[in-house]
Amino acid sequence: MSESPFEGDFRAAFATRFPELIRYLHRLSGDAALASDIAQETFVRLYQRGEMPADARAWLVTVAHNLFRDECRRATRRRSLLARRDPAYTLADAPPAPDAALESDERQRAVRAALDQLSERDRQLLLLRHEGYSYRELATVLSLVESSVGTLLARARIAFRRALEEKP
């Protein structure tokens, strides 16, 4: 049986967008399992929609944000996992040499802590920008005025770097 035009578009979108969406959600939440669940659920919703949205990338992140917010609100257990956000619990790569591991752990912890200090909007702005979102896409996804995105992004970057510097 031949595949419908929508299914072809869906598969293409999945191939290109799923990896970036799950990476973004993991950076946002610090929880790999949660990121995977939300990314998959977002694509399930897209498939159920039956047609591709005009701006699939913005649509996917908007739905993922809503799911993430719902999840944080709903599950206390999840919240406790997010609050812990200890990279030691989430890293699955082979352990490097002891000294390097210690240094690497400290830096990861510092980055995670710096991200956690940002407001939700600053964190989303910074992380989405690093996923290659344009100012216009950021404005759409985060419901901002496009002309203010540059200023807000600059503030988010400064806040992130300051939080990193303050970390002992």
Binding site: F10, R11, V44, Q48, V111
Partner: peptide, 22 residues
């Protein structure tokens, strides 16, 4: 710096997602 917190993330198959939606 941000890539430091990246890790190998679970993969998902598009067919599994479609099956779940269906």
């Amino acid at each position: 710096l941000l890539s430091l917190i990246d890790r190998r993330l679970p993969t998902a198959s598009v067919n599994a997602v479609i099956a779940r939606a269906a």
